[in-house]
Design a protein around this nucleic acid. Structure first.
Lengths: 217, 217
DNA sequence: TGCCGCTGAATGAACCGTCATTCAGTGTAG
DNA sequence: CTACACTGAATGACGGTTCATTCAGCGGCA
């Protein structure tokens, strides 16, 4: 078990990390169910069996992925909103979220697509990290409502869901818009739209709505 | 098995329909991958092999489900928006969508959860019905922008995605909230809300946004 | 009317390929 | 030499799909 210390000879980083990131890429490429453990092993450059030295099962691999990424996201969001007014927190939240998606396409793909399933096929695993995420967003909205910045006509937890829906759908559309062909060149591929720029659109939508105003923006 | 029981009296033994709806229930309950063809057969009251007289494969069953439901949805939406102004079309679209979700929980569950996957694990099947759906919504928005009702600051196809994101996420939250069986310990999942009422919230969000107003339109 | 042989829809047990998982063996560091 | 990380071929379960078989209903015939 104790994998601590002693960086591994075969390259940079922990073997556990290598497996985790390999799994992310493979799951993103084929989807969790279609992905084979042996493919993950190959991608990570380890033997099939080695995976089971670090993870209990294939499911455990997926869950570990979730938790790692959600934790990372939550921390980034916490940092981004620290010390701001509710109104600014909302903007920062949206921008940070979409920026993270842009930075980590494979992670985004796994999260947007497999997250949704996870609540179904793993009944026993109720996603605490995602609940935290929603609670954070809901908290911002509640605060903004209390300060009079946002309308109270919509329950905060519903508003949070709706905003997440917008972000999630944009992330999905963006991720799937990529061309799947060609080798794994490091360069970013042409996207259908600029997801970071989309942050402004989201902010416009959720603050002032789509209705035309005399004064734009 | 004789076809004389009352349950079978749906038309001239419409076995294909029975299988389709059984599959919907089973896929909703277990998820597509975890669902066994034999379970679908049992639910439909037919033998395993019978399913293959009506469908090419398990995948074909899922795709047939999609197409049937999306067609039904699209038709309902077309009817609902006929002869209205763009602004009213948007409201009608939202209301009709959520009403449909409320009416058919199992269908909603399959569509919201499995639809997302389909674009991944079945590369060769590109969902034309969903594209039509998005095009219809985009068309409404384009018209509303042209008539000056909606801002042109956001590209219509992006706005359509964002609105779909809101609707989809609400549908998902609603579907997963109605867990009839208590299931997990310490499971806080009593958040059942009225999804039809949520239509007004969605309309508020996307037209005037969340910002507090004195009183506008 | 009653009998008979035909048809093909329906059946469901068995088949077979596909992986997730295991474990006996290998190499190596200490 | 021992211990331990690692390996990857072997294993066994699982479930989608097939297909030999059944039999209800039908039409022709006496």
């Amino acid at each position: 078990m104790t994998v601590h210390s002693a960086a591994d000879r075969t390259g940079s980083g922990d073997k556990r990390e290598r497996i985790l990131f390999a799994a992310e890429r493979i799951f993103a490429r084929h989807g969790f169910f279609a992905a084979k453990v042996s493919d993950v092993a190959k991608e990570a450059g380890v033997a099939d069996g080695t995976i089971y030295l670090y993870f209990k099962s294939k499911d455990d691999l997926l869950i570990s992925l979730f938790e790692r990424r959600m934790l990372e996201l939550t921390e980034a969001l916490q940092t981004a909103i620290a010390g701001k007014s509710p109104r600014e927190q909302l903007r920062a939240f949206i921008r940070t979220y979409l920026q993270k998606c842009a930075d980590e396409a494979a992670a985004t793909e796994v999260l947007t697509i497999e997250l949704r399933q996870s609540s179904k096929f793993m009944k026993e695993y109720e996603n605490p990290a995602f609940a935290d995420f929603l609670r954070m967003l809901g908290g911002i909205i509640t605060a903004a409502q209390a300060s009079g910045d946002l309308t109270q006509a919509i329950p905060a937890h519903i508003a949070a869901r709706m905003i997440f829906g917008v972000l999630d759908e944009l992330a999905l559309a963006w991720v799937l818009a990529k061309q799947p062909f060609g080798g794994g060149a490091a360069g970013a591929r042409p996207k259908k739209f600029d997801i970071v720029r989309a942050a402004d659109w989201v902010i416009t939508l959720i603050t002032t709505g789509l209705e035309a105003h005399k004064e734009s923006k």
